[in-house]
Simulated scan of single mutants.
Amino acid sequence: MEPEVYPIAALAADLRRLCAEIADEHELLAAIRPLARRSALDRNSWFEERMNFPDTQQGFSVYRLHEEADHSLAILAVSWLPHRGTPPHDHGTWGVVTGVDGLERNDFYRRLDDRSRPGYAEIKCTASRIFGPGEVLTMSTGLIHSVHNDTNHLSLSLHIYGHHLNYTGRSQFDPEQRREIPFLLKLATE
């Protein structure tokens, strides 16, 4: 059975409507979950061959599928090389991630310090979750996680954020050095 066609433009329109109608972040994330899954299952409407070749230096590539002019909403595809991932980081906004191909491990962290010292952060890993095609992960503003592709195969996921990540002031964390530094995405060229 073929998945229902649900192009990125339709997803973006539905997201704009939901963001205007729902003020509570948890309710908003719950409303976005089925839309994210629906769009991920219709990968043929947005997948490009270049997504099979992530940046080898970075270990992953980020592809912009949609972004509002004021950066208030972003839909991205991220392809992950085998055995690569990200350091722990936050998003500075809410996020919804849906598995498209392959498996990804998310490790979740809790911040232990009081945030009073700029550039300093103590975090502790509290949970892990592996998710795959069609599975949806929602993340509230402030959540800290890392992503890893522990397999021997490329993985691909669809990401929806309340704001484009390079405009949120987000951070990455070094748990061993107890550091917090800015974290900007390198986008794949279009």
Rank of each mutant, 00 (worst) to 15 (best):
T98R: 05
Q172K: 15
D101N: 05
Q172F: 12
I75A: 11
L158Y: 02
D113M: 00
V136P: 00
I160K: 03
H159V: 04
S171I: 11
H91T: 05
H89C: 10
L103F: 11
V78K: 13
Y109G: 05
C125Q: 14
L158F: 04
G99P: 05
Y161V: 09
T93R: 01
S128W: 09
L165R: 06
P118H: 05
E67A: 14
H145D: 00
A121Q: 13
E68Q: 14
F108G: 04
R117T: 15
A69C: 12
A127W: 04
V78T: 15
Y167K: 07
T138W: 03
G142S: 02
I123Q: 07
D70T: 11
I75C: 11
E68N: 14
S171P: 14
A121H: 11
I160A: 02
N166F: 12
D113K: 05
F173M: 10
T86M: 04
E180V: 13
H71N: 15
G134R: 02
P118S: 05
Y161T: 08
Y120M: 08
L73V: 07
S171W: 14
I123A: 06
T141F: 09
D90Y: 04
S157I: 04
G119H: 10
A69N: 15
L154K: 01
S116D: 11
K124V: 14
G95H: 08
F173C: 06
I160R: 00
G102W: 02
P87C: 08
L112T: 00
A74Y: 11
M139H: 04
E135M: 05
G119N: 10
G134C: 08
L137S: 03
V97E: 10
R117E: 13
P133E: 02
R115N: 12
L81T: 03
L76Y: 13
D174Q: 10
F183K: 14
Y120P: 10
P182V: 07
E122S: 09
I123F: 04
H83G: 02
E180G: 12
T98M: 03
M139N: 08
T141H: 09
T168R: 12
D174E: 12
Q172W: 13
R105H: 08
Y120T: 09
A121F: 09
T151H: 00
Y167R: 06
L65S: 11
D174S: 13
S157D: 10
H163A: 13
V147W: 01
G95Q: 11
T98W: 02
L73C: 11
D101G: 01
H163K: 15
M139Q: 09
S79A: 14
C125M: 13
V96A: 05
N166Q: 14
V136N: 00
A69M: 14
R84C: 00
P175V: 09
H145C: 00
G92T: 13
S72W: 07
P182A: 08
F131W: 13
S157K: 08
R84Y: 01
E135L: 03
L143Q: 08
G142L: 05
I144W: 01
R111I: 09
T98L: 03
Y167E: 08
K124C: 13
W80K: 05
N106K: 07
V97T: 11
S140R: 06
P88Q: 05
R84K: 07
I123M: 02
L156I: 01
L143K: 07
G92S: 12
A74C: 15
N106T: 08
R111V: 11
S128Q: 14
L137F: 04
T98A: 09
R111N: 09
D107T: 13
